[in-house]
Amino acid sequence: MTQYLLDIAGAPTFIAREINRVLSSGGVWLNLGLPFRRSSDPPDAGPLTCDDMPAFLDDLAFDALEIRRRRAMFHDLSALDEWLPASVHSTIFFAAKKRGDLAPDPVARAFEDHAARRGTAILDMIPRLIAGRRIHLLEGWSFGPGGAKPRVELIAASGKSMSIPGPLGAFLRRLLSSIDGERTAREVLAAVGSASDDALTEDDFVVLLRTLMLRGWLEIGQTRPSAQRQP
């Protein structure tokens, strides 16, 4: 069962593939949540709604049993205080049955192999920032009664922002600048490590890559774009 998950996940297809993997044949997936976007969707595409669910589920080897729109009360705190606000919105509900197993995803397999110490193929793959999903790193100053303080703010593609410590901001600047769609993950690690006072271990770097992928910040391909164009 997934509840308000696909709409906040950066890579909902990755999660759906994992649900397919752990379910037995004929197992049922229940979902309730808001419309969502896949990381592979073009920037101008709207979120997936109920009308898009049959094709989405079919691509992931699920047969839809029921799909409908439901009005739901969200964050209702009226039991604590009747004056507190609540939100009502339309959600996607579906029940889907697993039709069969999906072919293994090579990127997911590479992450699993690295975690199990079976190989380092993930380091030879190419991380790329997703087209149309810009990440903004703003460095400046904040002023208040305590005086001027340096401030670093990260604004992700979703528009959500967060304040981060200055040293982490410098690290993210080096990291994101090194992910150019041409370098392998191994080359990115070497570039970031050579510019850093603190050593970044290979294991920590792989975990960071996986986190950025699941957040929908980047995608990982198997080969260099130049290699794909060669006859």
Results as ranks from 00 to 15, higher is better:
residue 3 Q to P: 00
residue 4 Y to G: 03
residue 4 Y to I: 05
residue 6 L to P: 00
residue 8 I to Y: 00
residue 9 A to T: 13
residue 10 G to S: 10
residue 12 P to S: 06
residue 13 T to S: 14
residue 14 F to Q: 11
residue 15 I to H: 01
residue 16 A to N: 02
residue 21 R to W: 07
residue 22 V to R: 09
residue 24 S to V: 13
residue 27 G to V: 05
residue 28 V to Q: 06
residue 30 L to P: 00
residue 30 L to E: 13
residue 32 L to I: 14
residue 35 P to R: 11
residue 39 S to V: 15
residue 40 S to K: 06
residue 43 P to G: 00
residue 45 A to I: 03
residue 47 P to L: 12
residue 47 P to Q: 12
residue 48 L to Y: 12
residue 49 T to C: 06
residue 54 P to G: 09
residue 55 A to Y: 06
residue 56 F to E: 10
residue 57 L to P: 01
residue 61 A to T: 04
residue 62 F to D: 02
residue 65 L to S: 01
residue 69 R to S: 14
residue 70 R to V: 15
residue 70 R to A: 12
residue 73 M to G: 09
residue 79 A to W: 09
residue 80 L to E: 11
residue 80 L to G: 11
residue 81 D to Y: 04
residue 85 P to I: 03
residue 85 P to G: 13
residue 87 S to G: 03
residue 88 V to E: 15
residue 91 T to V: 11
residue 93 F to A: 01
residue 97 K to H: 02
residue 98 K to Q: 09
residue 103 A to G: 06
residue 104 P to S: 14
residue 107 V to P: 06
residue 108 A to M: 08
residue 109 R to A: 15
residue 113 D to K: 11
residue 113 D to P: 04
residue 113 D to V: 04
residue 113 D to F: 07
residue 115 A to P: 01
residue 115 A to D: 14
residue 116 A to S: 12
residue 117 R to Q: 13
residue 117 R to Y: 03
residue 120 T to R: 12
residue 124 D to E: 15
residue 124 D to G: 11
residue 124 D to C: 05
residue 126 I to S: 02
residue 126 I to V: 15
residue 128 R to E: 09
residue 128 R to T: 08
residue 130 I to P: 03
residue 137 L to S: 05
residue 138 L to C: 01
residue 138 L to V: 05
residue 138 L to F: 02
residue 139 E to F: 12
residue 140 G to P: 14
residue 144 G to Y: 09
residue 146 G to F: 09
residue 149 K to F: 08
residue 157 A to M: 01
residue 162 M to Y: 00
residue 162 M to D: 10
residue 163 S to T: 08
residue 166 G to E: 13
residue 169 G to Q: 04
residue 171 F to A: 07
residue 172 L to C: 03
residue 173 R to S: 11
residue 174 R to Y: 07
residue 174 R to A: 12
residue 179 I to C: 02
residue 182 E to T: 09
residue 182 E to L: 10
residue 190 A to E: 10
residue 192 V to S: 02
residue 194 S to V: 06
residue 195 A to S: 14
residue 195 A to I: 03
residue 196 S to P: 02
residue 197 D to Y: 06
residue 197 D to I: 04
residue 202 E to T: 11
residue 202 E to A: 05
residue 204 D to K: 05
residue 204 D to G: 10
residue 208 L to I: 00
residue 209 L to C: 02
residue 211 T to C: 10
residue 211 T to W: 06
residue 211 T to A: 13
residue 214 L to G: 10
residue 215 R to M: 09
residue 216 G to T: 06
residue 217 W to E: 04
residue 223 T to V: 10
residue 224 R to F: 00
residue 224 R to C: 01
residue 225 P to A: 09
residue 225 P to R: 07
residue 228 Q to E: 13
residue 229 R to T: 08
